[in-house]
Design a protein around this nucleic acid. Structure first.
Lengths: 179, 179
DNA sequence: CAATAAGTAGACCGATTTGTCTACCTGCGA
DNA sequence: TCGCAGGTAGACAAATCGGTCTACTTATTG
């Protein structure tokens, strides 16, 4: 419909996810996308509106990806297996839909916009809530404790993959290239 | 020894942890601490040096706090119990040494400085490594798989407390105040 | 044809950023 | 008494930030 608007969101999401939102200025989004500044501000009221659109898009993509991964599971055990298999595949950059893994966009963003009452932080909170809801809907047993455990491990896995394991892999890679 | 230097680190850490590093300018650190700009740049080469000093201080504080919490445990089970009891106490703002809970300073910071090769990101990675090492040294059994599980749950708990549970508590609080 | 919506390039604005510089003050030890 | 380390206040520079504005160019469509 509005290809420029979509291009702006795609570009912004890419850059924001790669480098953090506060590190990316509006001018960088413009020069990378090749869109004029006037056009950006005809589609979005402010940078914050663009950020929220990018968060919204990432949210929709992620929920869709997750739904598809869990669809058709035959048991709770299979749901859990599928979930963590999918996460592992994401961490290893095997999930094209999600792009190169750089942690969870919503965890990262909430670290930059820490005011709990800001719209941006609340959207991050909302996203986590929705992911939890998707998982719960694929479980037959309405076991809240198990759901909590699954979500706890999921968050732990994402953060650990980003901050602990991923740098280690890059270290290994750079050593391999040096020798 | 150099009280102004220490005051700058304390102030910077406070502000950085509360609002995120990119949201806090050097001028804010100066006006809050009451120190002159010239003095800051006589102690630190750049803002990045101040950031690293703040990370270093938080690291030392956190490791010391953790050591003290785990000291004297009689079994692996007790280590685990003590660890998660201490974390829960931190989340509930009962740990004066660590200040008001706003997630893990190192997870938050690594979200803002996502370049894996930057000194700041590497320090965050280093911190997580050291925490893991402290925990492993208090366990009698050299069980790598169990250590991994503990660390995974720990990270999950920190992120979940920050992004999922804490906003919920603040919601409840604001509702309580409204009615 | 004419009107309109959507786009471009880029100058410009005021605020803010990190960092430098000048000029001056103060307390301490040789 | 002299020198100096360590401090203050704040002007200043250069860059960058988000955002506005003018003037012009398309493309579509009634």
């Amino acid at each position: 419909m509005q290809p420029k608007r979509q291009l702006l969101i795609d570009t912004a999401l890419d850059l924001f996810y790669k480098s953090g939102i506060n590190s990316i200025g509006i001018n960088e989004v413009l020069s990378v996308s090749g869109v004029a500044k006037r056009t950006l501000y005809s589609h979005f009221q402010s940078k914050e509106a663009l950020i929220l659109a990018a968060l919204q898009q990432r949210h929709t993509t992620f929920i869709g990806w997750l739904e598809q991964k869990l669809l058709g599971s035959q048991s709770d055990t299979e749901v859990i297996q599928r979930l963590f298999t999918a996460l592992a595949s994401w961490f290893e950059n095997q999930e094209q839909l999600l792009g190169n893994f750089r942690g969870c966009f919503f965890i990262n963003t909430s670290a930059e916009f820490s005011d709990v009452n800001s719209e941006i932080f609340r959207f991050c909170h909302f996203h986590k809530d929705q992911v939890r809801h998707v998982i719960s809907q694929h479980l037959t047993a309405a076991n809240h404790a198990m759901l909590d455990h699954i979500c706890l491990l999921k968050e732990g896995a994402i953060v650990t993959a980003h901050l602990v394991i991923h740098p280690f892999l890059i270290d290994a890679e750079s050593r391999r290239l040096r020798y």
